[in-house]
Design a protein around this nucleic acid. Structure first.
Ligand SMILES: NC(=O)c1ccc[n+]([C@@H]2O[C@H](COP(=O)([O-])OP(=O)(O)OC[C@H]3O[C@@H](n4cnc5c(N)ncnc54)[C@H](O)[C@@H]3O)[C@@H](O)[C@H]2O)c1
Ligand SMILES: NC(=O)c1ccc[n+]([C@@H]2O[C@H](COP(=O)([O-])OP(=O)(O)OC[C@H]3O[C@@H](n4cnc5c(N)ncnc54)[C@H](O)[C@@H]3O)[C@@H](O)[C@H]2O)c1
Lengths: 203, 203
DNA sequence: CCCCCATTGTGAAATAGTTCACAATGCGGA
DNA sequence: TCCGCATTGTGAACTATTTCACAATGGGGG
């Protein structure tokens, strides 16, 4: 498969959200573009990397395109997700329904702090992080969310990688080192605020 | 000023974080690159858009480069930030110290829910969102964080824009329409998980 | 049955971003 | 003082992404 850019994948994800809300049976690239804040040529180009799903003169069948994009993104299967770090951010994430709706199921929560271990969070008992490796050996997980302080993030990630986790969503504001077969996405909110600061300073 | 790419600004922000932690008095582009996960040429190119801050043969003075980047990003001043939406995500954000450390001060919290209005959050009383416009007229704010459900986000943003807010950090998973002089950054975590899903599905 | 038209799919052109490669240069040591 | 060397700053080359523009075509109406 030829290399598809990250921006294309992100846009597919945006199109998918609108397709799931669409009420008409078909939709044109122009309409999808308007909703997703891009251009119709961009929509068609993005889709063209994966095949040709539309009908000329008509547009795209909403149910079919929905299915195709879900398939491209690998969303037809569900994912087991473990969360490490039962702090404030972890708490917000565990209770968030948007993830589950899209097929990402948080199946375990780990922390280091004895005051948190054993407490029940949204139906899950917070486990001691020392069980991370043995638990993952029993019940493997493809995806982990890291919501520990920055200092522990790399150490936690090393342990996750050794336990076979192949994709990590990281909330700690540090770049993480992982082997090339592991994918990391870091959500760095302070950095987003700083790009806003830059745009305020330069107008 | 010529157009600087978003990726350059984000990298500057990453370099800044390492400069603030550096212990040696100087640092080379190669070292910054290693820490920030990029290349030395990229570091030098990024900086060259704004001037020449290094010494050939030596590298960059850590305190000077720190100051320069803070200045470029507009971080020398502090920012007043209002938060709209006192839910789980809003709660995590209010308590987060990382923002304040970098000069972003949450000065007011708004919600619609009468059960939340009046409660004290980290020293701030949650206010009824109906006061948003009058409060902002009295105490303007450059930056707002939107952490309401997706359905209300556009409406809240319209009100913020009318009240003179010029930069918005949005956590609701919808693209927002704003006039061209207002900058919006959307943090879309479900979308990040979906890019991870794509990478798991395609290996 | 055939024409019209909206809209796709896609090479080619344009633009944006990254990497290369090397001359310029400041510093430390002889 | 002068040499050697590490490292910057930057055009130029390269690579990636977006936009353009138009031929191809499916469907609906006459
Ligand atoms: N709260 C926010 O709004 C926010 C915003 C941006 C970024 N972040 C980042 O998200 C991360 C978590 O933030 P938070 O506010 O939830 O912090 P927090 O201190 O509330 O929670 C961190 C949790 O991680 C646990 N922990 C520490 N070391 C651990 C380890 N080795 N293994 C397992 N658990 C461990 C702690 O016991 C704690 O419960 C931090 O890196 C922070 O910088 C948070
Ligand atoms: N919690 C998470 O981990 C998470 C993750 C990703 C995205 N998000 C997004 O962040 C946003 C907030 O999520 P949450 O989990 O905190 O939801 P939440 O329901 O806990 O909180 C939302 C808050 O917004 C308030 N609100 C609703 N309409 C309002 C209005 N018009 N003006 C002011 N306040 C209003 C509600 O009263 C509530 O207190 C949502 O858009 C959600 O999709 C949350």
């Amino acid at each position: 498969m030829r290399k598809i850019s990250d921006s294309t994948i992100r846009r597919l994800s945006v199109y998918l959200r609108f397709l799931e809300q669409a009420k008409s049976p078909t939709i044109s690239s122009g309409e999808l573009a308007r909703l997703g804040g891009t251009t119709s040529a961009q929509v068609r180009k993005d889709l063209s990397f994966f095949g040709s799903f539309g009908k000329r003169g008509l547009g795209y069948s909403v149910p079919e395109l929905t299915r195709r994009i879900r398939d491209i993104l690998g969303l037809e299967r569900g994912y087991r997700v473990v969360l490490v770090g039962a702090g404030r951010m972890g708490g917000a994430l565990v209770q968030y329904h948007g993830f589950r709706q899209r097929g990402f199921h948080i199946t375990a929560i780990y922390d280091q702090d004895s005051r948190k271990i054993g407490s029940r969070w949204n139906g899950l008992v917070v486990r001691d992080v020392k069980h991370l490796e043995t638990d993952l050996k029993k019940d493997p997980s493809d995806i982990a969310i890291v919501a520990t302080p920055a200092e522990s993030a790399q150490h936690v990630v090393d342990r996750l990688v050794r336990s076979g986790v192949k994709a990590i969503l990281n909330f700690a504001p540090v770049p993480l080192n992982v082997p090339p077969d592991v994918e990391v996405k870091t959500v760095n909110m302070a950095l987003e605020l700083e790009t806003l600061s830059y745009s305020l300073a330069n107008r």
